[in-house]
Amino acid sequence: MWSQIASLGDAHCYVLGGGLAISLAMMESGCLKPKIFVEFHLQNDANALLRNRESDVQINFGLRSSDQPECIVVVDKVYSGGSLRLAAERMSKLYPAARVIKVGLFPKSLEGVESCDYVVFGGALLDVSYFDGRSGGPWHYALWRKANQ
């Protein structure tokens, strides 16, 4: 699964809250592509999505400011998808020519799934860009069936 995520793009962005451990797992699987770490302080901040995001943290490894990756994969654990969306927006602003793919790990809500292009669920990487979790019963059952096809 980690090698599948690695193959999606030529640079990876991780949200630091859960991303450091994820990036280490990716490195262990052989993914040595450039990495960008970002951090957004969303917890316990009712105005977090309205604040100026420039003060949040960003650290680049192996990616110079002059580099223009074709595709950046943003990876994060997904609850509501808020931090994943913010990270994707930041990558789009910093690298306007790059395609940005959002990969959510272990989604906890349908809103989180809907904010992703791919999710890791049931031990599989699933393309959810066309997933309709509002039909056919509970969304997590539908994802489980998709993971076990």
Rank of each mutant, 00 (worst) to 15 (best):
I36P: 13
E70C: 06
V100Y: 00
R134P: 01
V78Y: 04
R90I: 07
R53C: 09
E28C: 15
W139T: 10
V74E: 02
M27F: 12
P107M: 02
F121G: 05
L42C: 09
R145E: 10
M26K: 13
K108H: 01
P96R: 05
W2M: 08
Y79A: 14
D56S: 08
M91K: 03
A25Y: 15
W139I: 09
V74Y: 03
E39W: 03
N52D: 15
K108Y: 01
S3E: 15
G19I: 06
G62Y: 04
R134Q: 11
K102N: 05
V100K: 04
G30P: 09
W144P: 12
F61C: 08
K102C: 09
A98M: 02
G62S: 05
D56H: 05
F121I: 07
V57N: 12
W2Y: 14
Q43A: 03
W139P: 02
L24T: 13
Q149K: 06
A147W: 08
L42G: 00
A11P: 11
I36A: 03
C116P: 00
G112Y: 01
D117S: 02
I72W: 06
H140V: 12
D10F: 10
S65W: 09
Q149V: 13
F106Q: 11
V119E: 09
N44Y: 04
L42S: 02
V120D: 04
L110S: 05
Y14F: 15
L16P: 04
L20N: 08
G137S: 11
V38D: 01
I36Y: 04
S23P: 05
K102I: 02
D10G: 09
M26P: 06
S55I: 15
L24D: 14
L125N: 09
E54G: 07
C71F: 04
I36C: 02
L105H: 11
R145I: 08
P69H: 03
V119G: 06
F37R: 08
R90Y: 11
D132R: 03
S29D: 13
A98H: 00
G133Q: 03
A21T: 14
M91Y: 07
C13Y: 01
I72N: 02
A87N: 04
L24I: 15
F37W: 14
K108G: 03
A88I: 02
L110N: 05
W139V: 09
G30R: 07
I22D: 07
K35Q: 13
G9D: 02
L63K: 10
V120H: 07
K35Y: 06
R90L: 06
F106W: 07
L20K: 14
K77L: 10
K93M: 09
S65H: 05
L84V: 05
V15L: 11
V15H: 06
A88R: 01
V75D: 00
F106Y: 14
L8R: 01
D132T: 07
M1N: 09
G9A: 07
R134T: 08
S92W: 04
C71P: 00
G104C: 05
D67W: 05
F106C: 10
G136H: 04
A46Y: 12
C116M: 02
V57P: 01
E54D: 13
G122A: 15
R99I: 02
